[in-house]
Design a protein around this nucleic acid. Structure first.
Lengths: 104, 104
DNA sequence: TCAATAGTTCGATATTTATCGAACTATTGA
DNA sequence: TCAATAGTTCGATAAATATCGAACTATTGA
């Protein structure tokens, strides 16, 4: 079983979270998870190579923005909304709201 | 007279803003401006070389996070609070609030 | 048992970025 | 007029990052 590491809510770093969100591919990914809910990696059409997509998922996971849970041959990804809200209140909502106002 | 370029509020890019904020030196700088109000570059003790500080001010300015107005031999810097609030409501407040909760 | 599916890891590469010191420019106050 | 002050620009460098393809690993369904 592949169990990727997820940082604890209390240890999340603001700089890390902001950096994770400051890439067009990743922001697009986060936006998709926000609207579609839990999704497998492949279900999100990122228009990059598989290895590149894997890289971006890892950056988001290690920053604490998403969680990945194994499900058969795939991973189901979702936003850590509650955790982020607890650690950095209002931040994710503001980014998601902004990402709709922006073309990215 | 040195008049640096400032992007229009309507053209601010979310990715650019998040990237500008995702550096420890710059986040610290933004935090200082938020608490102290308008400040000259030299008044903020960034603990980096003058040229490096200048670079960070430029990144923040070009992202639209700060505005710089010439005043004698120096520049007075301030946050573009209202502009950011208009373009990306709640974002700056959430980041500032988070930056207090975080060690950066 | 085994092929198919879903991601990860690895090695390479090109780009971006943070950093510095030195030289430069602009403004003011004496 | 000129020295002092405040930043900027330039050139160099080291580190981080986004990207890819190929090889690998883990899981399931037939």
């Amino acid at each position: 079983m592949r169990l990727p590491n997820h940082p604890l809510t209390e240890t999340l770093s603001l700089v890390r979270v902001l950096h994770a969100l400051s890439d067009p591919v990743r922001l697009n990914l986060v936006q998709s998870l926000a609207t579609k809910g839990e999704q497998a990696c492949g279900a999100l059409n990122l228009n990059v190579a598989k290895s590149t997509a894997s890289h971006h998922f890892r950056v988001l996971r290690e920053a604490g923005v998403i969680q990945m849970r194994p499900d058969g041959t795939q991973f189901l990804n979702s936003l850590r909304k509650e955790d982020l809200e607890q650690r950095f209140p209002g931040l994710l909502d503001a980014v998601l709201r902004a990402s709709k106002a922006d073309d990215i």
